[in-house]
Amino acid sequence: MSVTFQDIEAAAKRLEGHIVRTPCTFSQRLSAATHRKIWVKSENQQFTSAFKERGALNKILSLSESERARGVFAASAGNHGQGLAYHAQRLGIPATIVMPVGTPFVKVQKTQSFGAIIVIEGANYDEASKAAQTLCEERQGVYVHPFNDRDVIIGQGTIAIEMLEQAPELDTLLVPIGGGGLIAGVAIAAKAIKPWIKIIGVEAAMFPSFTARRRNMPVPMGGSTIAEGIAVKEVGDLSFELANPHVDDVVVIDEADFERGIAAYANVEKTVAEGAGAAGLGAIMRFPERFKDQNVGTILCGGNIDLRLLASVLQRELVREKRLVTYRILGDDRPGMLSLMADTIAAKGGNIVDVAHNRLVLDVPAKGAEFDIMVETQDARHAFEISEALRSTGYALRMD
């Protein structure tokens, strides 16, 4: 089954006026922070905050009147379900979305708010997908796969057309890979417009399905990743077949890289990215030498991140940068001990955020106490200065 550039061009015209033509802009702040030239395609500005609308809508628009009347079905715990439900509601098409048990209530509620019938079934995506396909067959509807579908892939490819119209100087595109639908569409379109452009995929270390298929090697898949949008155990057969000839390379990044990307988007670019959305930026920060002297386009493919998770990521980044440090001090359990530590930290300009006393730890003397003092610092050097000042008091110290 083939996909041509003409197919993607036709889809771009078909989607006009139905989706947001999101900006692809040069980021002065991210470029300065990474010392690389970076353009960001902000798909988090779509109505449902993710690129998935493109493929879902293109699929819907390709249906006959009788198919629309029978309704669309999908399995999703996130962006695909929301994108399909939103555009189905706009066009008056019944939509049923099967979501796995344990899907966060906020995602269930948001998808339901777009008028979809929600069915909670299956312990994971694979089981939910089987349930959705069974329902679809029973009701003679149309199953809309999130990535292994020709019309969906064509819709995702419209991103590349927009990117190269908005930033024709791009010579490298970084594309997140989960099931492979996004990179398949983007690679076909981008290579047709600019044959010498480099297409680099980015995968999560826990789910390197595209890399495993390319190398024809069994690789363990699974784990709790912050990039749940690309946590796919098996790349789609169709999406792999279409993408593989056009993908120049694939890089695999770790959880810390996704977190750094999310934090950089929030702190530097002042925008919100979910884990998968930060994949491209995370790859640049992990492998900066690979992108030296290149005009790099990244796809911020989604911004649907739980606010508590975002807060945790930002705080963890402060810890990585030594701007939030916990000093563990073993001292005497006597009046004035904590005051001495506080005065020492204050004299160096540190801000105490939290204090915990540990008196029942067995490796601490009965007449002693262990203090965990969390301190906000300016940077790693400032954190070191505070630690040296605390050590000068004569008490044992450990930093976290």
Rank of each mutant, 00 (worst) to 15 (best):
D149A: 00
A311R: 05
V3A: 11
V106M: 11
C136R: 07
I19A: 03
F105Y: 12
R308I: 14
N304H: 08
G179A: 00
R308D: 13
N358C: 14
A132R: 06
V152Q: 00
A276K: 02
A77D: 01
S49R: 12
G180E: 01
E321A: 12
L30K: 07
G178Y: 07
L397W: 03
A12V: 09
V252D: 08
M341W: 05
K41R: 12
F207N: 03
V119Y: 06
E274T: 07
V319T: 01
A11L: 08
C24Y: 10
L15S: 04
D151G: 00
K292S: 13
L390T: 15
A123N: 12
E259T: 04
A192F: 01
K348I: 08
A85R: 05
A88W: 07
F114Y: 15
T25Y: 07
E43D: 14
K52L: 12
E376R: 12
A95F: 12
A380N: 05
M217G: 00
L362W: 08
A123C: 10
L135V: 04
S239M: 03
E376H: 14
A279E: 08
E138R: 11
V202I: 04
R391W: 11
P176R: 10
D400S: 14
L57C: 02
S2T: 08
R290G: 14
A75R: 00
D379N: 13
L338Q: 04
D257L: 10
R290Q: 12
G302I: 00
K107N: 10
K13E: 06
N44C: 03
A74P: 04
E162P: 04
A383E: 05
L362C: 06
K130D: 14
I226M: 14
S129K: 11
G185N: 01
V20H: 10
Y143G: 04
E127N: 09
C136N: 13
A77M: 02
R308Y: 13
S64H: 04
G303H: 08
G229E: 11
S209F: 05
Y327E: 02
H87F: 15
N44L: 06
K41E: 09
E121A: 15
M341V: 12
I159P: 01
V202G: 01
I188C: 03
M206C: 15
Q46D: 03
A33R: 01
L91M: 04
R308P: 04
L318Q: 12
V142S: 06
S62P: 10
P220M: 02
D333L: 12
V250G: 10
Q378D: 13
A263C: 09
Y395V: 15
M99S: 02
F51Q: 00
L330K: 05
G55W: 07
L15K: 02
L397C: 14
K107W: 11
P104H: 09
E317M: 13
E16A: 15
I345H: 08
I154T: 10
Q89H: 13
R70G: 13
A77Q: 02
A167I: 07
R260Q: 12
R391I: 08
I352W: 11
A256P: 03
T377M: 04
T158E: 05
T25R: 06
A33I: 05
S224H: 15
R139M: 13
A347R: 03
I60W: 00
R213A: 00
S312M: 09
M285L: 09
A311Y: 04
V186D: 09
